[in-house]
């Protein structure tokens, strides 16, 4: 029995791990882009667009991720937009995590001293030059630790997409227990898989935070 544990459990879980990783990668990159653009907009106060972005971050941060996922997966088909669980998962992760990343990036930009903005202006730099050479290099240092923490939350949120039918790590674990495997063992191993992915990122985030 012990010899079969590898084929029976570990190999199955690795196939689930593949989907968890795909989902995390796609959602991380896209939500970082959303957060970056929306964070920039929020920091420069364009009248109407800033209100729209404020409304977006306010609503999304007040809503549980699972509810958002259900809304996207169940309400959109009502308007004849059918999404696969994977696409629905990526979309809801990007909307959800994008809002948090917006706040992180905005606070990073705003934490750079006002004098730096004024100095850049007085040197005759335009907005893009100012951001590229003065503000962002300083802001990145501050935003990196919370951003890494947010990536960990994103990876952990992917587990919920198993509830709409994507066979990710958590769902494979659930299926194995339905076949009568020991749930303690299975979910412990599933936990170890997530731990191996997330703990290094948490560790880096903690270290960066201490060094800032």
């Amino acid at each position: 029995m012990e010899s079969g544990i590898f084929d029976r459990i570990i190999m199955q879980l690795v196939t689930g791990l593949y989907w968890t990783l795909c989902l995390s990668m796609a959602a991380s990159i896209l939500s970082l882009i959303v957060g970056f653009v929306a964070g920039l907009i929020k920091s420069i106060h364009v009248p109407i667009i800033t209100y729209v972005v404020n409304f977006y971050t306010y609503i999304v941060r007040g809503v549980p991720f699972l509810l958002l996922l259900f809304i996207i997966y169940y309400v959109l088909p009502f308007f004849n937009i059918r999404l696969s669980p994977f696409i629905a998962g990526v979309l809801s992760l990007v909307i959800h995590e994008g809002a948090y990343m917006t706040e992180i990036i905005r606070s990073g930009i705003e934490s750079v001293e006002k004098g730096q903005h004024e100095a850049a202006h007085s040197l005759g730099l335009n907005y893009f030059q100012k951001m590229r050479y003065i503000i962002l290099p300083q802001a990145i240092k501050i935003t990196l630790p919370p951003l890494a923490g947010q990536f960990v939350l994103l990876i952990k949120s992917t587990a919920l997409i198993s509830l709409i039918g994507l066979t990710d790590l958590t769902r494979v674990g659930r299926q194995l227990t339905q076949r009568g495997e020991n749930p303690f063992l299975i979910f412990f191993i599933v936990g170890i898989f997530y731990f191996v992915i997330c703990y290094p990122i948490i560790n880096i985030s903690d270290r960066l935070e201490r060094s800032v």
């Binding site: 303690f184 412990f188 936990g191 997330c198």
Partner: peptide, 23 residues
């Protein structure tokens, strides 16, 4: 603390909900 922070809540919920009846 590190173990909890590095694993999804859903897995922890499953661990408790399906694990406890098993013992």
């Amino acid at each position: 603390i590190n173990l909890i922070r590095s694993t999804p809540l859903l897995v922890q919920v499953y661990f408790v909900y399906f694990g406890l009846p098993y013992i």
